[in-house]
Design a protein around this nucleic acid. Structure first.
Lengths: 210, 210, 210, 210
DNA sequence: AATGAATGAGCTTTCATTCAT
DNA sequence: GATGAATGAAAGCTCATTCAT
């Protein structure tokens, strides 16, 4: 019989299950995605329990799926590697903003799942949030301390939280809540954001508001 | 027989049902809060269907609960009334920040519900998000245009989204995702935020970063 | 407050309950007519249990309603009183047919209920069927024996069952199953029926088929 | 574990469900036959929802069951094929009567269900009644027109309705209402019925009543 | 007499999971 | 590895009935 599902039957079943499950978890929530529906999306017979040949429970699929997302996020943990050293603060900030937004977009599915399931599965969140959020905020705070003379650690953390938070919220609103068009386009947002962060640095250079 | 529920039995049952339901929806999500559990929390016999003497469906409880929250939010729609005219931009911003954070805290429950149920009940969100988010962002953008000479409307919307977004994300992280302590305390955050916003205004006055 | 229900509020509540209940039982069946719906139809607050001030249970309403219908049927028990003695067999049969059809129409509601609930409440049927059906059939058989010389009792019972049965089925089909227009109009049916019954009598006129 | 249900566990579950469901629908009505009870009768664990692996709803079981009954009735649609051509009117009528009674007995279960559910599910009845009743009546009327010279179509329909109706009502009373023994035995009934129908035909032999 | 509120039992349906094949 | 069938538990909801007011 032919596999009529959307899933590519060349990838191993286990992978297809995780992929489709995570997609469904993002779309309709963990509770809303029944095992039968996941099976159907993965090209298995719905309700046949085929999922249990690959995972011991529905929850395990979620855990494996989240872990897989997180593995791809390890690079983000040290945002400084991304920023690099361009010798120009504004250029470095621009790269940072674009990269952070791109990452949030790439992880939109994960974000949706984390947000939906945060309350019912708090233990799942610890590692995820740490990799996705906390460490990024810390890392950016470190960069701030190094870049801006005289910025103390606490102030840097506050600035980091406000700065990255403003980008995060734009993506949470758009990708999670579905609220659109609160700001014009990404490039304007990045420009304004760079201005904003520069304005918070106790810089010695003359600042320009555009 | 004694009423063993946590709810205050002096308030009418209908109110207790909405209160407890909204609390549970925020804690464990709409699907996670079974009618039986809501009834128990409201001091009714769980599973007896007592909820249906006051509401025609579980969904109606959610709708009524959300509407009740929204009714209290009407004042927030025009944030400018709150800002008032203190004659001092920094002071006005400080008030704005504190008020916005306080509102987000007061509506933490609503936020949690909106975020959890956004995908399964998009129609419910339209009004809510508009009152809670969009109109506030717009209103603040208006204030920016009026306050800062030479700030064009698009730029003002971008600044508004970034500025309020940074406050919003701090509350989403704390009240919805449960991520704590990314920034020290509220007062430092407000201070830094005021600096930040001032830094984005094409001001004529000399600005001071503290 | 005004009573908006269809029921005439001048008749005593108890009567209104029986009336509306029987109407609903006929329309949607015993199980389909909830106590709340009966109350609403009777001008009481639905779900308030007002019915129980007049009846000890929903079933009692049915019993009382059926009994009330049956009381009106006592006259039918001796169909011979209706037929009377017109001195003309054909005329007497015509009256019989018209009367029987009219009675079945008048008791359409009762018929519907009896048919719907016959299996779940067999004890209720005994008296009803006896009054409505059996005794009528017997009574007509008696008339046949008296009217037609040489008709033995068994044959008379068979003829009665066939003759009245054909009228009964036309009403069951129309009033209970809702099947319409299997025969043109009532008067043609009556005519044909009189012919039919006359043809079955061992009349003094030459009859052909035995 | 042993299968304790009454149903033969060698027939497929789906068949057993339909069989037992139709039996129960006939006995206690559609509403009276709970899914759990049907499951138990079909040898499944009551309340486990096993029925839903074979049907999407309780209603679907009814529809499938009725359709199955109807499929067996297609032959009856043209009663003339059954009557055939025996060259003898009385003989042909005898066959007709016996066949019609036998069919009504075979479909007693279906009759009970149709009668009980006629009001709540009128759409279900259309096809059923047409196959079981209307077409049979029409078909017999056709035969009457062909057999009896000078019988016009309207009169034939009336006679058909009266004649078959008298047989139908005997079975409705016995198989649906449970009223017994209004007529002695089937053979006497058939004899009398043949007499009756012959008496209504404008035969070439001298007939008296028109 | 009437009502608002409550309740226990039952309803149809969903679903995660198991297991023999 | 995959499937069809089965199951226990729980879901949202309905309803006949009771009772204090």
């Amino acid at each position: 019989m032919f596999t009529l599902g959307v899933a590519d039957s060349s990838t191993p079943t286990r992978e297809r299950i995780v992929d489709e499950a995570m997609r469904l978890f993002g779309e309709v929530g963990y509770k809303g995605a029944s095992v039968a529906r996941i099976e159907a999306a993965a090209g298995l017979q719905p309700g046949s329990g085929g999922l249990y040949h690959h995972f011991s429970s529905k929850e395990e699929v979620l855990v494996v799926g989240i872990r897989r997302h997180l593995d791809r996020l390890d690079a983000l943990r040290d945002i400084r590697r991304v920023i690099g050293d361009l010798g120009d603060t504004r250029a470095e900030l621009k790269v940072t903003a674009r990269y952070f937004l791109a990452e949030l977009d790439a992880q939109a599915e994960l974000l949706r799942i984390l947000v939906s399931e945060s309350r019912s599965r708090p233990q799942l969140l610890t590692e995820a949030v740490d990799k996705l959020i906390s460490s990024t905020f810390d890392s950016f705070a470190d960069w701030l301390v190094d870049t801006a003379d005289g910025l103390d650690r606490d102030r840097a953390r506050t600035v980091s939280a406000l700065a990255l938070g403003s980008l995060l919220s734009s993506r949470l609103l758009r990708n999670v809540l579905g609220v659109d068009a609160l700001a014009p386009d990404d490039e304007s947002t990045v420009e304004a954001w760079v201005d904003m962060v520069c304005g918070m640095l106790p810089s010695d250079e003359p600042r320009v508001n555009t």
